[in-house]
Amino acid sequence: MAEQTDLVEAVSVLRDEVLETAEHGDRDPPGSEVFDALLRALSIGGESVPGLDLQLHESVSRRLAWGDSEEVALSDAEMVFDRLMIAVERAFRDPDDQIVVVEAALQVAVTVARVVSLAAVARATRDRASRMREEMSQRQLSEVLEKQKANIAKLEQDLKSGFR
């Protein structure tokens, strides 16, 4: 079994194969945050507390904030995982190395799913709150509109009556 640093380097080599760098360039192609998280997980080694990779949280959240949908973020993570499975089988002859990388990859994939779900739930909460505010605004606006209509009718009546 390769040393941990060697393993990280060996996985790094798969970057171009796993990410679509040919289409998107080397800078932040879709799913790069997942691949980077995998490298971090391999560097640390061993099991970590689920979802503790704050950098992954931050990267996914930033993508969502910049307009990527949760579906797209999740889809990219799945794409990286699927390609990685194929690449790992081809690139690593040592089964133990394969096991380490696959374990780390799944850990990252589950973390991404957790982050995306948290973001979706937070969005739903915000949307619920916003909708309540919208409905309150609508009630107020409806009241205002009714009063405006009454005022307009009254003013029109006053003007018609020839008030000078």
Partner: peptide, 8 residues
């Protein structure tokens, strides 16, 4: 996760 997104 898809079901969570579907629900939200």
């Amino acid at each position: 996760t898809g079901l969570v997104l579907e629900a939200t």
